[in-house]
Design a protein around this nucleic acid. Structure first.
Lengths: 134, 134
DNA sequence: CTTACTGTGCCACTTCACTAGTACAGTAAG
DNA sequence: CTTACTGTACTAGTGAAGTGGCACAGTAAG
């Protein structure tokens, strides 16, 4: 359970924390019922304000990913890490790993990769959501 | 020359604009010497404040990607879109396009793809920057 | 010079992410 | 009950992003 946040990326820290927790759940690093670190504990190790962690937990609870019980702590909700999913994720990880390696061999910088990837996602989104053909 | 910005993503708009312009230059949609739209013009079509566009241009100038001449306008700087680069970019685009398609066939959502991709980039960064092996 | 474009600078204001300290409330174990 | 943990609520402040309006300055063409 170690997170890596980038305070200078422009993305709000609480959103980054949420993403990392989601990632941990998706990849199986966290399972249903597992207890998340306490708000103050996490804030201490990540060198940030407890309120920021609390906000991340609150948002994740609204999304249904975790369950926050007042005096007890925060726990990963049920019905997320089916074995079927974890296999799917592992496949995807393999694909992306080799993809990134190929891009590196092309001499691509991290920023360039990210821009091209986001561009592909944009194309995808437009092809699936645009229905008003003028 | 059309940009797509997402005001609700948490990423500052001026940063998104910068990324899109960089992308346009890298992919060859903009070439060295090309004039960028005027600050007021762009702000009008993108429905945002001229100051936001100005900030993006200013930052891009600091990075050396564009050249801003006071009474004339903003122009793409030289020495960026060599034909060698555009071929490299096209290869990378092909790779990423097929990668995204494979991820979609796995049933991955856009958020999941982005998280896994960012994770791979993180792995990469750590493997190349960590030198203090204790 | 005049006009119409370009970018730049200044000021006020709103919103939001984040920090900081403090206090309150639920839970579980001694 | 007491203690020590959990999350929650409140207030106040800082800083950055973005909006809005206005004035200024450089450039190029008539």
């Amino acid at each position: 359970m170690h997170f890596r946040l980038n305070p200078t990326s422009g993305v709000p820290i609480y959103l980054q924390l949420m993403e990392q927790i989601k990632h941990a759940v998706e990849t199986g690093a966290l399972h249903s019922g597992d207890q998340l670190p306490g708000i103050r504990t996490l804030a201490g190790t990540l060198v940030m304000n407890p309120h920021t962690v609390a906000k991340a937990y609150r948002e994740l609870q609204h999304e249904g990913l975790i369950e926050v019980r007042h005096g007890s702590g925060a726990f990963v909700a049920g019905g997320y890490s089916s074995t079927n999913d974890s296999l799917r994720i592992r496949k995807a990880q393999g694909i992306l790993k080799s993809t990134v390696e190929r891009l590196i061999s092309l001499g691509m910088a991290e920023d360039e990769m990210r821009r091209l990837f986001e561009y592909e996602l944009l194309q995808l989104r437009e092809n699936t959501t645009i229905r008003t053909g003028k």
